[in-house]
Simulated assay, not measured.
Amino acid sequence: MREHSLDVTPAERWGEGLVAVEAARPIELDVRLESVHEGILVSGTIETVYEGECSRCLLAIAQPVEVEIQELFTYPGQETSDFEVQDDHVDLETLVRDAIVLSLPFQPVCQPDCPGLDPATGERLAERPGTEPRAPIDPRWGALKEFTDEGSEA
């Protein structure tokens, strides 16, 4: 068994959509390599930071991401596997990239209760506390609004 702590930087951007791990962003790996009968068992944790935009208010965000991995790298010549030991080495790049990209949020938010943008003005609702977004009135019912406005003034 061997344990390694590595700091690596990807050569390209990992991820698509609203958030991604940018190129040259440090990635911390703490891995344990164990020799087993079928091959080499790799387990550990990955820590980095993703950057992008909030899906509700479009504010720039940067959040930490931590992923646990465990994968068996089989020896060549045995069953077909996604990961194989090659020349007594294991290539962790594909494993690390896939684990990070799959852990990125599909709809990231700057805060869990982010109210988003006002559909009429496009302003961030979080910057205007106490104001509720008004639902647009269906134009077919617009004539009835006159009756409610007159009734509330009396």
Rank of each mutant, 00 (worst) to 15 (best):
G15S: 10
G52T: 03
V90D: 12
P119F: 00
E53F: 14
E84L: 15
A135P: 08
Y50G: 02
D30N: 13
P139S: 09
V96S: 03
E47R: 12
E123S: 10
R124I: 04
A154N: 11
E71W: 01
D88F: 06
D98P: 14
E16I: 01
T131W: 10
A62E: 15
P119I: 00
D118W: 04
E53M: 12
C114M: 09
R2P: 08
A60V: 01
V36Y: 08
E68S: 14
G130C: 08
T9Q: 15
C57Q: 07
E132Y: 01
T45D: 13
D98E: 15
I100K: 03
A62T: 06
E153C: 00
R97F: 07
D87Q: 14
R32G: 03
A24W: 02
E3M: 09
R2H: 11
H89I: 00
P119L: 07
P136H: 01
P64Y: 08
S152H: 05
Y75H: 09
I69H: 10
P112H: 03
I61D: 00
I27S: 01
Q70K: 04
S152P: 05
K145M: 15
R140I: 05
Q78F: 05
C57M: 07
S55R: 01
V109H: 12
V42R: 06
E150H: 13
D88L: 11
V65D: 10
V109E: 15
P76M: 01
P133T: 00
R2I: 08
P115W: 01
L6R: 04
L102H: 06
V36H: 05
D87L: 10
R128H: 10
T9V: 14
D30P: 02
R56Y: 09
A20H: 06
W141P: 04
A126H: 07
E146T: 12
D149A: 14
Q78A: 13
L102Y: 04
I27M: 03
A24S: 12
